[in-house]
């Protein structure tokens, strides 16, 4: 699924990531921890194709995204990657079904198929009966669950989660993390969880620490 080799990214004279390597297969769920400013966000940006490395390769499903131009990376991201953000970023003017189907619209999926998959995912995250609800009617935890559904609806090869529970209370956070792990595994995707919470990182299969630009087992 995801294969990173020799990844280097510098900002000015400072090397944030230095000769980083990572291998993820389908169903593998890894957590990356580190202090603030260590480079976790940078790593995520590079994997997502939002940034270009100074050196090294990033392969998603065999394709080296570092060699692609921006639009190509964006299109790849569209099909291959799902995102869960810390601040939910659920569009408040769309109802839950519309929010979840958004990635499918971007792919040109026919409406009938969209309806089916949206229902499937919302049910999977426990919000199957709230399809037509508006985001303002939901709590933070419920919104993050919608975000999880959205991240998975298009069957991405890779799911990236950036501090998904940063805005949630501990109980809700646990439930969401469990859901995320389950959902990733169930669909055979690879998952990368970036967090500074050891507790959250523990929900993943492996925990890696970003230390001086490299990933080391935590």
């Amino acid at each position: 699924m995801l294969s990173i080799l020799g990844l280097t990214r510098r900002f000015g004279a400072r090397a944030i990531l230095h000769d980083l390597a990572l291998d993820l297969g389908a169903g593998e769920y890894v957590a990356v921890v580190g202090e603030s400013g260590a480079g976790k966000s940078t790593l995520l940006n590079l994997i997502a194709g939002l940034d270009v490395p100074d050196g090294g390769q990033i392969r998603i499903d065999g394709t080296d995204i570092a060699a692609l131009d921006e639009d190509a990376r964006t299109r790849l991201r569209r099909t291959r990657v799902g995102f869960v953000f810390q601040a939910f970023h659920i569009l408040p003017h769309l109802n839950l079904a519309q929010n979840v189907e958004l990635p499918l619209v971007l792919l040109g999926t026919p409406p009938s198929e969209r309806t089916v998959r949206v229902r499937e995912l919302l049910t999977a995250v426990g919000l199957g009966d709230r399809e037509a609800s508006l985001p303002r009617e939901l709590s933070g935890g419920e919104l993050q669950r919608v975000a999880v559904a959205r991240a998975l609806v298009h069957r991405p090869a890779l799911v990236l989660a950036d501090e998904p529970t940063g805005n949630l209370d501990p109980d809700t956070a646990d439930r969401v993390l469990a859901l995320l792990a389950r959902a990733i595994k169930a669909r055979g995707a690879a998952g990368v969880l970036v967090t500074h919470s050891e507790h959250a990182a523990a929900t993943a299969d492996r925990v890696l620490r970003l230390d001086h630009g490299r990933l080391v087992p935590a």
């Binding site: 939002l50 964006t74 569209r78 990657v81 995102f83 953000f85 569009l91 958004l102 971007l106």
Partner: peptide, 15 residues
């Protein structure tokens, strides 16, 4: 900005 940035994350091109 945030909304549009989020869309970019989801795979909407600049164009």
């Amino acid at each position: 900005t945030r909304e549009l940035g989020m869309l970019r994350h989801l795979g909407v091109t600049r164009g």
